[in-house]
């Protein structure tokens, strides 16, 4: 286990349900009702300082309980310039959190990283996971009349959607 994971587990205690470092990617699993609190700590704590939400996505494990998993990729970038040396990435972390099919929702992290706004909208668009506390939960890449959530595993690739005429 890497030093980072050890430090995180010490700090967060029982909020971390599981952790692994498969292929060198440090990963922790967090219960869905504690995501907000964990993320706030990861961002604010001086030994982690995850100031960038690199990526936010979800995976549909159909047939597993909980069915969905929201995956956050965090990064910690040095903001202060060190003379003429390039900034380095201090560390990366993957945080995963299971989300059940009903109720299909999880806390939004937009209050911590504004970057989460569009990414959460995208996850809602493709997986139908609602983010509590997000003030603009609309579809983003698909159109409003689209039925279903296409990246769910039970959505067939060949399904056709009704054609929508121009909106006025």
């Amino acid at each position: 286990m890497s030093d980072l994971l050890q430090a995180i587990e010490e700090k967060l205690g029982d909020a971390v349900e599981d952790s692994h470092a498969y292929r060198g990617d440090d990963t922790i699993l967090v219960s869905h009702d504690r995501v907000l609190e964990v993320m706030q700590t990861l961002k604010d704590d001086s030994s982690f300082r995850f100031n960038m939400l690199i990526d936010l996505t979800a995976v549909d494990y159909l047939g597993r309980d909980p069915r969905f998993e929201v995956v956050y990729h965090l990064g910690s970038v040095e903001v202060e310039a060190r003379g003429s040396e390039p900034s380095s990435l201090r560390h990366r972390l993957r945080v995963k959190s299971g989300v059940a099919e009903v109720p299909c929702e999880i806390d939004s992290v937009t209050s911590i990283w504004p970057a989460a706004n569009w990414m959460e909208r995208e996850v809602f668009d493709f997986y139908g996971i609602r983010f509590k506390g997000h003030d603009d939960m609309r579809r983003i890449l698909l159109y409003e009349e689209f039925q279903g959530h296409p990246l769910r595993k039970d959505y067939p690739k060949e399904r056709r959607q009704p054609l929508i005429g121009p909106r006025n």
């Binding site: 960038m52 690199i54 970038v77 310039a81 040396e85 390039p86 900034s87 380095s88």
Partner: peptide, 24 residues
């Protein structure tokens, strides 16, 4: 830039010399 996870030339133009080719 950091709050919105902006990377690439946009981030470097704001003064943060962060480039993945150097960082990792």
């Amino acid at each position: 830039c950091v709050a919105y996870s902006v990377t690439g030339p946009l981030l470097r133009a704001a003064g943060i010399p962060y480039d993945l080719r150097k960082a990792e």
